[in-house]
Design a protein around this nucleic acid. Structure first.
Length: 924
RNA sequence: AGGCGCGUAGCUCAGUUGGUUAGAGCACCACCUUGACAUGGUGGGGGUCAGCAGUUCGAAUCUGCUCGUGCCUACCA
């Protein structure tokens, strides 16, 4: 093995081997375990959030696969309607073309081309991450099978009356020319104005002042409303206003929606351009006057002067005109929430159009119950509240999009505008006996989330009754972020229950959202995104800047992005390798909502990989070609250290498994790190050195070699789900030595080995306590050495004083460990003799003494002792206080009280000993 | 406005049903190239657990309030 761990050298080939050998496919087994990947955008690329969640999924999948479950990780991508169409349209724009120049068919050809061209990016990235997805089952939301499922669902829902077509006010994106759902609208507070406009009464008897943030919509006003109880306006109710600029007459109505405290207490009502006004318009039977085109320019319903004007130009002009006529009372600064399309970024218009809707009420009910009765469980649990609160107040889902890229709505119109829904045109003709009537299919496509909502069952072959569906549905767990609970999770639950009668998944593990160093959300426009592959492969500063600043929505951000990138990554990013990145993700996956990604932790875990690598080198160095106890006939003897590490291993396995089963990847990772570094490497490997180098029995050496190899082999299997590459690489060399494989096995893999199971019979409390004692003595000497500035290489004599019989026995048994690990040249047991003048540390009641002669400075030792005494003194006072409290004695459980008493006793005795020792030294 | 979350060492975070001397990694200080590993070893420093009040023999942990902070939902003419 190479001296240092080099991920690039080992990660490349293993994935290929695994994939070629078809290890990712379900391997059979009694119980199935299935995870559906949340389908990423086919033309997109893997960002840190994906890499994070995919790591967690892969960890679960590899863990379950090793446990012998019939495991499927279903992979695939979605077509991301708006996003993908936008990309292709932008490419066309570069050639000066629009999609209309090409026509629908040719444009779609272009999109498919683009999909073929860019679709490989994300799957390559998944491979580089080590994701053990079953590529043979890869699906895409627009492939034939899934499209069939979409169509089937649409038709069935329509036939049951759960899909309907209606003219409604929708969120209209005037740039993309499509309706979007509530969820795709982002409302943020922005600075704006409140214009106060005077509306004269038609009879000339007075005027009302209305306040508005959108003066241009006045052209579509259908009424002015006041609160029915508002005394100021009683006499106005029922009168008419002569609407400025248009001269149209509109009524003054009373409605208790109006808040008399807000603005002027008079509200202009524009039913065709505001959601609240729309409702009020319906209540009062007001006309819906649409004044916009699909571009949000003013249409023929506006006075001629404004027709064709862009909405904000029109606003300017209208304000100016009102001002000229003396009708503009005042303009106040006003903060307001501005709704923008999450894709286009332009302000969304409430707009009256024909759209298709899913009536969600009847679908929502069972979806709520499934979570209430525990068929579906959120982890962490409190996300259930979020889910419930949204589900209880659900709006019908607008599913049509005025796009070309997507599943075309299976509805056909005849020339009278009558429509028929069916699986295809022929079926429609047949069913409705339309003969050779001219039919035209609906131009619109379905919301991408409509097909994603079917993901868990459509990917398994539905509507066919496939074996896969039977075996793997319901799936076991969904791993996703809270940001798409509404978009996706809730809709998936509704649709899946409706069409399969099963829940889509039994558990939903909601991960935190990955943020950058400063807690900022990673986004391309902020220029703080990291490409997971750059952490794996490393990247120089300049290419990183280039990557972050190219193709920005706002090119002027480039400068500040460059500056902050130079500051944060002055030397670029080193190559950490996939395993280190994956282990970082696991370590960060605690219960928090926000996860700040810290590169330094990745560095730390890269070092951890190196540690594991070198531990393996040490083990191989001492076992390869040696007798590692494979022959059961030969005598074998396990030392206390052997028994100790085996015992600790059982507990680590326990902790790891428990943590993983409860989705605490962080705790699982921590237990692994802790065991490997702080127990196996720091202590066990060191303890094995004297054992192997001594002239002890062959049986004992055999036992130690076997333990070295077996524990390492188990560590590798335990770590494999989180760190697949390094574990496979090392395992291949270690497995034959440990007996996990035979020399003759040429095509084995750690991937398919059994996952470690803790064995209670291998726990050994006595060994743990003995090693605890050994460690304490060694640490005592090291402490003196460190504090007294004695060179680590300098061999020391040590005296043990005031020890018990037990201490003596342990000394006799474990002396070689102490000599070796504490670097001693002698250990002297003092029964009744007076010890030489020494620096002192306590292990229980036993004094560990390092003679001062020539080594230790008197003042330094005085200081060190005083520090210890002060510490103990504090402890004593604390405990005495507690134990003097009668209520504590009376009410606390006996074992707690006893524990405190013991603590006090040992603190007192320790303190006393150190005080004595201090006195001795001071006498010098 | 309503809901949810967070505030623990310089930084990023653990802390299971209240009982520890409040932990880890990184960073910091000192010493050390020792035959697995300087991507390392050994030792060390560092916290009024945001604040206040309460429940309790005992609170980082439970309750209430305050402050700070983040997110979500709704409304804002």
């Amino acid at each position: 093995m190479e001296k240092t761990y080099n991920p690039a050298a080992i990660e490349q080939s293993w994935y290929q081997t695994w994939e070629e050998r078809n290890y990712f496919a379900p391997q059979g087994g009694e119980s199935a375990y299935c995870i559906m990947i949340p389908p990423p955008n086919v033309t997109g690329s893997l960002h840190m959030g994906h890499a994070f969640q995919d790591t967690l999924m892969d960890t679960l999948i590899r863990y379950k696969r090793m446990q012998g479950h019939n495991t499927l990780w279903q992979v695939g991508t979605d077509h991301a309607g708006i996003a993908t169409q936008m990309v292709v349209e932008r490419q066309l724009l570069a050639e000066g073309l629009s999609r209309h120049d090409l026509g629908r068919e040719k444009f779609l050809d272009k999109v498919w081309e683009w999909k073929e061209e860019s679709g490989g990016t994300i799957t390559k990235q998944l491979r580089r991450m080590g994701a053990s997805v079953d590529w043979s089952r890869e699906r895409f939301t627009m492939d034939d099978g899934l499209s069939e499922a979409v169509q089937e669902v649409f038709v069935q829902l329509y036939e049951e009356g759960l899909i309907y077509r209606g003219k409604r006010l929708v969120n209209w994106d005037p740039k993309l020319h499509t309706a979007i759902s509530d969820l795709e609208v982002i409302s943020e507070e922005e600075n704006g104005f409140m214009w106060h406009i005077s509306y004269d009464l038609a009879d000339g008897s007075g005027s009302l002042v209305v306040a508005t943030t959108r003066p241009e919509t006045m052209l579509g006003d259908a009424a002015v409303a006041v609160h029915p109880d508002d005394e100021r306006f009683q006499s106005f109710i029922g009168k008419e206003i002569k609407l400025p600029l248009t001269g149209r007459l509109i009524p003054i109505i009373a409605d208790d929606y109006v808040d008399p405290e807000f603005g002027t207490g008079c509200v202009k009502i524009t039913p065709a351009h505001d959601f609240n006004d729309y409702d009020m318009g319906k209540r009062h039977n007001l006309p819906m006057i649409n004044i916009f085109t699909i571009d949000a320019n003013l249409n023929e319903n506006a006075p001629e002067k404004y027709q064709g004007m862009e909405r904000f130009d029109a606003r300017k002009q209208i304000v100016e005109d009102l001002s000229e006529q003396g009708l503009l009372v005042k303009i106040d600064d006003h903060k307001l929430k501005v709704p923008r399309g999450d894709r286009s970024g332009v302000i969304v218009e409430p707009f009256l159009t024909d759209q298709w809707y899913v009536a969600v009420e009847s679908l929502a009910k069972p979806a709520i119950e499934a979570v209430e009765n525990g068929d579906i469980e959120f982890v962490p649990k409190n996300w259930e509240n979020t889910y419930f609160s949204w589900m209880r107040d659900l709006q019908d889902w607008c599913i049509s999009r005025q796009l070309w890229w997507g599943h075309r709505i299976p509805a056909w119109y005849d020339e009278d505008g009558k429509f028929y829904v069916g699986r295809n045109e022929a079926e429609v003709r047949e069913k409705h006996q339309l003969g050779d009537k001219v039919l035209r299919q609906d131009d619109d496509v379905l919301d991408t989330w409509f097909s994603s909502a079917l993901w868990t069952f459509s990917t398994l072959g539905w509507p066919e009754k496939t074996d896969a569906l039977k075996t793997f549905h319901s799936t076991d767990v969904l791993v996703t972020g809270f940001d798409i609970i509404f978009f996706w999770v809730a809709r998936m639950i509704m649709m899946t229950l409706k069409f399969t009668g099963e829940v889509p998944f039994k558990k939903i593990y909601i991960t935190g959202l990955l943020r950058d160093n400063d807690g900022q959300k990673m986004s391309k426009s902020k220029g703080n995104v990291l490409d997971p592959l750059d952490l794996i492969n490393g990247i120089e500063l300049e290419p990183l800047i280039e990557k972050r600043t190219k193709s920005l929505m706002q090119p002027k951000m480039a400068k500040s992005i460059e500056k902050s990138t130079r500051k944060q990554f002055s030397d670029g990013i080193p190559a950490f390798g996939t395993d280190a990145l994956r282990f970082t993700f696991c370590s960060l996956a605690s219960t928090g909502r926000d996860i700040k990604f810290d590169l330094q932790r990745t560095e730390g875990y890269r070092n951890f990989c190196n540690k594991l690598w070198n531990a393996a080198r040490y083990v191989l160095m001492n076992t390869d070609g040696e007798d590692c106890g494979l022959n059961e006939q030969l005598p074998i003897e396990l030392s206390v250290a052997d028994r100790w590490i085996i015992s600790r291993l059982q507990k680590t396995e326990e902790t790891f498994i428990h943590a993983l089963e409860s989705f605490r990847f962080d705790l699982a990772a921590q237990s692994l790190y802790d065991f490997v570094w702080n127990e196996y490497c720091d202590w066990y490997l060191e303890l094995s050195k004297p054992a192997l180098n001594s002239d002890g029995s062959e049986a004992a050496k055999r036992g130690t070699r076997r333990t070295l190899v077996r524990v390492l082999e188990t560590i590798l299997r335990l770590s494999h789900p989180m760190m697949p590459f390094i574990t496979e690489e090392i395992w291949q060399r270690v497995a034959p030595l440990s007996g996990a494989t035979k020399e003759s096995d040429t095509e084995t893999t750690i991937m398919l080995q059994p996952f470690p199971q803790p064995d209670n019979s291998k726990k050994d409390e006595a060994a743990e306590q003995d090693i605890q004692w050994v460690k304490q003595v060694i640490i005592a000497v090291r402490n003196i050495r460190g504090e007294m500035d004695i060179a680590p290489g300098k061999k020391l004599p040590v005296y043990l004083h005031n020890g018990s019989d037990g201490d003596l026995k342990r000394l006799q048994q474990y002396e070689s460990y102490l000599i070796s690990l504490a670097r001693l040249n002698s250990i002297t047991w003092l029964a009744n003799e007076t010890p030489p003048l020494s620096a002192t540390q306590l292990v229980g009641n036993m004094e560990v003494l390092v003679p001062m002669a020539g080594l230790i400075d008197k003042d330094a030792e005085v200081q060190r002792l005083q520090k210890e005494i002060d510490k103990l003194d504090k402890e004593v006072r604390r405990l005495e206080g507690k134990l003097c409290n009668e209520k504590f004695i009376a009410k606390a459980p006996v074992n707690i009280v006893d524990k405190e008493k013991d603590k006090l006793a040992s603190a007192l005795s320790a303190k006393e000993k150190l005080i004595e020792q201090l006195a001795v030294i001071n006498e010098l």
